[in-house]
Amino acid sequence: MVPDILKIEGVTKQFGGFTALNEVSLSIPQGERFGLIGPNGSGKTTLINCVSGALRNEAGRILFDGEDVSRLPAYQRTRRGIARSFQIPRPFASMSVVENLVVPLEYVVHRGSLRGADTRGEALAILRGMGLAAKADTPANQLSQVELRKLELARAMAARPRLLISDEAMAGLAPNEVDEVLAILFDLNRAGITIIMIEHIMHAVMRFSQRMVCLDAGRIICEGAPDAIVANPEVQRAYLGA
């Protein structure tokens, strides 16, 4: 049996009186392509914010590779191997594309042993894999939407993660661009990286995921194979509204 890389146990998160996550539990085995769906405000982003460390959950545990990381600051989690992309791209706008990748290379991969490390070379290699090499020295604030999405993924990859959380990396892209990003994610998964995909573009997340979970109002309402999820009446109700 493949060991779980991420185990979420009874995670609860409240904002004031509003319960955004209500005792959510999940296990994700190493190497899985996992899809997380749910209507707006269902708690998807809150959940991955709790996993990546941008938010602290009030109750429950988050185990990464068997270690409880739920009290660690975000940068510590990144160093342990959790990386994410942001729904609205957040490039380091004052830097060039390649420099964006040098940040995680310096702060995660070569931390403490910077001398002699060819961070630029490594960053360029990652950019080549994403088809961004031509833009390496372009300032990050001059990129197009699709390039920004790719940069998000490339920067996350530069931290050499074992778990990648892709937060709506394809929203607002043209169909051929969606395919491009999907291909990149498939490649990364083949290289052994576990991927959690949050997505509104249904056909994309269905094509990508081996297993899916649907959140609604802070709870998991359904879990299973993509076909089973879409056929589930509760999921349909959550999406269409009842």
Binding site: P73, A74, Y75, T78, R84, P91, F92, M95, Y107, R111
Partner: peptide
């Protein structure tokens, strides 16, 4: 300065 959240998520101890 560019994005504190993104900095944390790329391993920077902000």
């Amino acid at each position: 300065r560019d994005s504190e959240e993104a900095a944390e998520c790329t391993g920077v101890p902000t």
